[in-house]
């Protein structure tokens, strides 16, 4: 049997979910007998290819996040929202309490210790969305893996379930939002 192809990305996240994924330690060796990574920060491949499973960490805070998410959805048979930020916006969504202008001025104009105050406007910088959104508000999500981050065991569980053709499920002790 050919290996399942898995793509991963971090949008408006902190890469903590990816770190937790790697926290499965040596179990990743066994897992790699059955899966191979396509686009992922783990192998630094930058372009999406058709794959079986996409793991999305982080919510949507800028235009590039939306573009990458849509590219993943088009290429992945199964899309999994990984972690609090992908599921409900998480910590980045705390900025939704303020206007974008307030956030930018606090960070780049009025913040303590800011040198040469100005709001960055290089064309290379993706435009920020006015609010942070969870990913299911933009694309269809097939499964959710909650946690901040989800424990390594939960990654192993959901991937093993999918590899063995079962509907993924989490035991109670792996269900946490923090």
């Amino acid at each position: 049997m050919s290996k399942l192809r898995v793509g991963t990305t971090s949008l408006a996240g902190c890469f903590g979910c990816h770190m937790s994924f790697l926290d499965m330690d040596e179990r990743i060796v066994g897992l790699l007998e059955h899966i191979e990574f396509t686009r992922s920060p783990i192998n630094d491949i930058k372009h999406c290819e058709p794959c079986d499973i996409g793991l999305i960490e982080g919510g949507l805070c800028n235009a590039d996040n939306v573009h990458v998410l849509q590219e993943f959805r088009e290429n992945c048979k199964i899309l999994i929202a990984v972690g609090a930020c992908a599921i409900n916006g998480g910590v980045p969504a705390m900025r939704n309490h303020f206007t974008l202008k307030q956030c930018l001025e606090e960070a780049f104009i009025d913040g303590i210790g800011v040198d040469n105050p100005h709001i960055p406007n290089d064309v290379e910088i993706p435009l920020l969305l006015s609010k942070v959104h969870p990913i299911h508000e933009v694309v269809k999500v097939d499964y959710y893996l909650p946690g901040c981050p989800p424990p390594a065991d939960a990654f192993v569980k959901i991937l093993t379930d999918l590899l063995e053709g079962r509907e993924p499920s989490l035991p109670n002790e792996m269900l946490h939002y923090d």
């Binding site: 599921i87 969504a93 309490h97 959104h133 969870p134 299911h136 893996l145 269900l175 946490h176």
Partner: peptide, 15 residues
């Protein structure tokens, strides 16, 4: 939410 096995908010967030 843990007790009921809630995995996501399903609805659009109010914020």
């Amino acid at each position: 939410a843990y007790h009921l096995g809630m995995l996501d908010g399903h609805f659009p967030q109010f914020y």
